Computed example of a mutant assay.
Amino acid sequence: MLTDLPLLERPAAAAAAGFDAVEFWWPFDSAVPDDLTVDTFLRAINDAGVLLTGLNFYAGNMPAGERGVISSPSRTKEFRASLDTAVGIARLTGCRGFNALYGLRQEDVPQAEQDAAAVENLMVAADAVGHLGGTVLVEPLSGVPGYPLRTAADCFDVISRVREGGMANVALLADLYHLAVNGDDVAALLAGHAAEFGHVQIADAPGRGAPGTGGLPLARWILEARSGGYTGRIGLEYQSPSAEAFDWLQLPASDWPQLKESSV
């Protein structure tokens, strides 16, 4: 969202559009940014008057195509070093949702070893944010060859292993766009598991655009998530030039009965 704006301008742009909360991918170039860089980010959040409700853990070089490092045994030290920064931000902002991208498959490392590293790192991350009331989120992705978590079932399998290890504060990030594009039965998932979701994100398909630009029944799915017991925010994660990113908000409220409570 709003990627044509400098990162530090995005909280104010969200506030100007009428939102009171934002979520971010890891907003730094490294796993352990310096204090000034972190303070500058926090100042942008505070000056905009919005809440930080979601933060991706360090996920490697996202612009270069990386999508997480927790399943890479060689990146474990790097990932765990980043947790102090994430926890510090949580203490200062009240952020309680933390998305842990799994990472791409590595051909030179046995899959079982990668999966074991992921579970161990998720347990460490859950422990790090647990005393603050934080939840670690596990997300399926589409359009990323080599990313092993594509369905809700894939994520639930990982979540179960972490919970069996003693950490209960881990849950599904139900990105309805990714799930739909990957062929998941979204309606059945909402009916059976909405109350268990740690977070929900949306975009329309095809195209990953704003609500109403594609054919997904997003308004209906959000109502079904609510009726199924999901009480959290709805995160917007679609692609659109910032100048028109929120044009859909001009539609009658009855057309999008729950989206007015969303966060960017």
Rank of each mutant, 00 (worst) to 15 (best):
A203S: 15
S72L: 13
P206E: 13
E78Y: 07
Q106C: 14
N121G: 02
A31T: 00
V136P: 02
R163L: 00
D157P: 04
D247G: 00
E113W: 03
E237M: 09
S227K: 14
L51E: 06
V87Q: 12
A48N: 04
L8Q: 04
G165A: 05
Y147L: 06
D20W: 00
G133R: 10
N61V: 00
A15T: 01
S262M: 10
L5A: 11
L104W: 06
V38L: 09
D84M: 03
R96T: 11
F197V: 10
T3L: 11
P27G: 10
N46V: 11
Y230P: 09
L172A: 05
A100G: 06
W221F: 10
T231R: 15
S160T: 15
D4Q: 02
A16C: 03
W256A: 09
E113G: 07
V87A: 14
R43P: 00
L132N: 00
P217F: 12
V22N: 08
G228E: 07
F246V: 08
F98W: 01
S82E: 14
L36F: 11
V200E: 03
A125M: 00
V87Y: 12
R10E: 01
D4A: 03
A219T: 07
F246M: 06
A31K: 03
N56D: 12
S82K: 05
N169K: 02
A13L: 04
A17Y: 02
R91T: 14
G209A: 07
A243D: 08
R226M: 08
V124F: 00
W248L: 05
Q258E: 15
N121K: 03
S71A: 15
A180K: 07
E23H: 12
A187E: 15
L132H: 00
I234E: 12
S142T: 15
Y147G: 03
D255H: 09
P27K: 08
A112R: 13
G215R: 06
R91G: 10
N99W: 04
S240T: 09
V69P: 01
